[in-house]
Simulated scan of single mutants.
Amino acid sequence: MAQYTIIATAAMGLEALVAQEVRDLGYECKVDNGKVIFKGDETAIARANMWLRTADRVKIEIGSFKAFTFEELFQKTKALPWEKYITEDGEFPVSGKSVKSKLFSVSDCQAIVKKAIVERLKVAYKRVARFKEDGPLFKLEVSLLKDVATLTLDTSGVGLHKRGYRVGQGGAPLKETMAAALVLLTKWNPDRPFIDPFCGSGTIPIEAAMIGQNIAPGFNREFVSEQWPWMPATIWDKVRDEADEKANYDQPLNISGYDIDHKMIEIAKKNALEAGFGDLINFKQMQVSDVTINEKFEQNGVIVGNPPYGERLSDQPTIEKMYRDMGRVFGQYETWSVYMLTSYEGFEKLYGKPATKKRKLFNGFIRTDFYQYWGKRPKRAEK
Rank of each mutant, 00 (worst) to 15 (best):
Leu140Trp: 03
Ile265Gly: 01
Gln169Val: 05
Glu91Tyr: 10
Lys115Cys: 03
Pro217Gln: 10
Arg120Cys: 10
Lys284Pro: 00
Gly257Ala: 05
Ala79Phe: 02
Gly200Asn: 09
Val22Phe: 02
Val106Cys: 08
Glu207Gln: 13
Arg57Asn: 14
Leu145Asp: 10
Ala19Thr: 10
Thr77Glu: 08
Gln227Asn: 12
Ser343Asp: 03
Val224Trp: 02
Leu280Trp: 03
Val148Asn: 11
Ala129Gly: 09
Glu334Asn: 12
Asp196Asn: 04
Lys376Cys: 05
Phe365Asp: 11
Pro252Met: 06
Leu25Asp: 04
Lys102Arg: 14
Trp374Asn: 07
Glu274Asp: 05
Lys66Val: 13
Leu144Pro: 00
Arg324Asp: 01
Ser201Asp: 11
Ile204Thr: 07
Val113Asp: 00
Asp244Ala: 14
Ile293Gln: 05
Ser143Asp: 10
Leu145Met: 11
Ala180Asp: 03
Tyr339Trp: 13
Ala129Asn: 13
Gln287Ala: 09
Thr54Cys: 15
Cys199Asp: 01
Ala44Ile: 07
Ser64Glu: 13
Val224His: 03
Ile37Gly: 01
Pro307Gln: 06
Arg57Thr: 10
Ala172Tyr: 10
Pro136Ile: 00
Gly171His: 08
Asn282Glu: 09
Ala172Cys: 08
Asn33Glu: 14
Lys100Glu: 13
Ile267Tyr: 00
Asp369His: 14
Phe365Met: 11
Gly278Asp: 12
Lys246Gln: 14
Asp369Phe: 13
Ala2Ile: 11
Asn214His: 14
Asp261Gly: 03
Ala275Thr: 04
Tyr339Asn: 02
Val36Ile: 13
Ala268Arg: 03
Ala67Cys: 08
Lys30Ala: 15
Gly375Val: 06
Ala8Lys: 11
Gly276Gln: 04
Gly13Met: 12
Asn248Leu: 11
Lys84Pro: 00
Trp51Ser: 06
Ser107His: 12
Ala216Leu: 05
Ser256Ala: 12
Lys175Val: 00
Lys139Asp: 14
Phe92His: 03
Val304Asn: 04
Leu25Phe: 01
Val22Thr: 09
Met264Asp: 02
Val36Ala: 08
Gln251Ile: 02
Tyr371Thr: 03
Glu28Met: 12
Leu140Met: 09
Glu382Gly: 08
Phe65Gln: 04
Trp82Tyr: 06
Phe370Arg: 01
Gly157Leu: 08
Thr368Cys: 15
Pro308Val: 01
Phe297Arg: 14
Ala2His: 15
